[in-house]
Structures are given as structure tokens and as C-alpha cells.
């Protein structure tokens, strides 16, 4: 329980056995009374076992579905078990669970809350094509959502019951769809979105899924995904 609400933390994880135990432990330490669901997305290491030993519930997918596929499973679990709030947190330790109550508070006024870096707190910086992609995404998505969004690909989000129900039935599995397209979809259906500044940390172990060399391709795909999301209904 956080502020009288039943809260589920959903952690999508792919080969994060190096950090998942610390992340689950930190969440449970900082937020007693919340439930933690780790969605192991076909990891080839001991992610699932380590997470279960750390006290999380674990849903193990038989093969890799991508972050979006893992998240829809998480939202279905939240819907079927009657949670009021579902919060997505990365398995690499970049998100600080101490911000969770801050996100949950905002859910009194809006439907979907995004924990955003670059919004004043922390010193996380990005450059080059990846930076341009982020600028393009925030400009367009801020207009669509009618609120200032500076970190649209953030994987730190809190959803209320209404959004949980929508995401449980519809959540894109495609690359970038889980962040960009869900924002367009949510805003277009009349749900309200707001960002909250958070400081992000360095990942604890393992490697990030994007290398700098892929930054340019990332920009192109971000543009394509955004265009498609905008023409879709």
C-alpha cells in the first residue's frame, strides 16, 4: 500500500542477473507493502531464479517478446489481481524507487505519470543523433499530450486503474512502440499524462541495449515509429 492504494511494481528484465537482486531488494526495502512482479523475458542467465530468491513474484516468458510484450503481461497481471496502480521500473538499477511515492501522488490528478530525467534533477546527459531523436520526440509528443514531456522514452512510469485496463488489452510489442506509441494512444483516448522530474543513476551491471553506433538508426526508427503512431487511430 502506498497512500492507501494497492501498488504493483512491474520490472521487465532481460539477462539482468547482475542487478535484479539489488533492484528487487531496494524496492522492497524502500516501499514495504508493494508487490513486485519481475517479467523475465526469455533470459539465458539466472535472472528468474535470482529475482525469486530476492522476494519478487516472477513471470517467466518462454521466449523473448521485447519490453512491450513483457509489459502487457505485467498490466494483465495488475488488472486481473485488482491493483490500483502499476509502476514500471527498469531492472538495471537506473530508476530510484524512492521516487515512487512522488509518482503515485500525481495519479490523483492524472492517469499516467512519467518519471523524466533532464527535467531538473540528476545529471544524466545524452548527445548526438540520440539527443536529436529525443528532442524530436519530446516536441511532437508534448503537443499531442498537451503537457510538457522531455523524456518520452523513459521506462519509469506509473499508471492508474483506467490506464492499466487499457494497457492490459492493448500494448505494442514493437521497438519504441512501448514508449512512443503508447503515449500517443493514451493521449488520443483522452487520458491525461504528466511528467515528474527524477534523477537517473548509472546501470548497476550488464550492458545497455543500445550502443552509440546504433544512434543514427535509432533516430530513423524513432521518426518512422512516431509518424506511424500519428497516422494510426
Amino acid at each position: 500500500m502506498v497512500n492507501g492504494k494497492r501498488v504493483l511494481i512491474i520490472i521487465p528484465a532481460l539477462n539482468e542477473s547482475g542487478s535484479i537482486a539489488d533492484v528487487v531488494g531496494e524496492v522492497r526495502g524502500e516501499l514495504p507493502g508493494v508487490d513486485v512482479l519481475v517479467v523475465d523475458d526469455g533470459s539465458t542467465d539466472r535472472t528468474a531464479a535470482v529475482a525469486a530468491a530476492a522476494g519478487a513474484r516472477v513471470a517467466k516468458l518462454p521466449y523473448n517478446l521485447g519490453v512491450g510484450g513483457a509489459m502487457r503481461l505485467g498490466y494483465r497481471y495488475a488488472r486481473d489481481n485488482g491493483y490500483d496502480v502499476a509502476i514500471q521500473i527498469d531492472a538495471d538499477g537506473q530508476h530510484d524507487p524512492r521516487y515512487v511515492p512522488k509518482l503515485v501522488d500525481q495519479l490523483d490528478e492524472v492517469d499516467l505519470v512519467i518519471g523524466a530525467r533532464f527535467a531538473g534533477e540528476g545529471d544524466y546527459s545524452v548527445r548526438g543523433p540520440r539527443r536529436w531523436a529525443m528532442v524530436m520526440l519530446s516536441l511532437v509528443l508534448s503537443r499531442v499530450a498537451k503537457t510538457k514531456l522531455t523524456d518520452t522514452t523513459s521506462g519509469f512510469r506509473a499508471a492508474n486503474r483506467r490506464v492499466i485496463e487499457m494497457f492490459a488489452g492493448w500494448y505494442p510489442a514493437e521497438y519504441l512502440g512501448d514508449t512512443v506509441e503508447t503515449l500517443v494512444h493514451t493521449a488520443r483516448r483522452g487520458y491525461t499524462i504528466r511528467q515528474v522530474p527524477v534523477a537517473m543513476r548509472k546501470r548497476m551491471a550488464g550492458t545497455p541495449s543500445h550502443s552509440p553506433a546504433k544512434a543514427m538508426i535509432y533516430l530513423g526508427r524513432a521518426f518512422a515509429v512516431l509518424t506511424l503512431a500519428l497516422i494510426r487511430r
Binding site: E174, Y175, G177, A224, V225, L228, R232, R233
Partner: peptide
């Protein structure tokens, strides 16, 4: 094709 994409009948990778 644009209409199929708009109606979400084609996944992005094929649509693109």
C-alpha cells in the same frame, strides 16, 4: 497499405 497500417492490421516491420 497505408489504410491497413492505420487500422493496425499490419505490424510495423512489414508495413515499413
Amino acid at each position: 497499405i497505408v489504410e491497413l497500417l492505420r487500422r493496425r492490421q499490419l505490424r510495423e516491420k512489414y508495413g515499413m
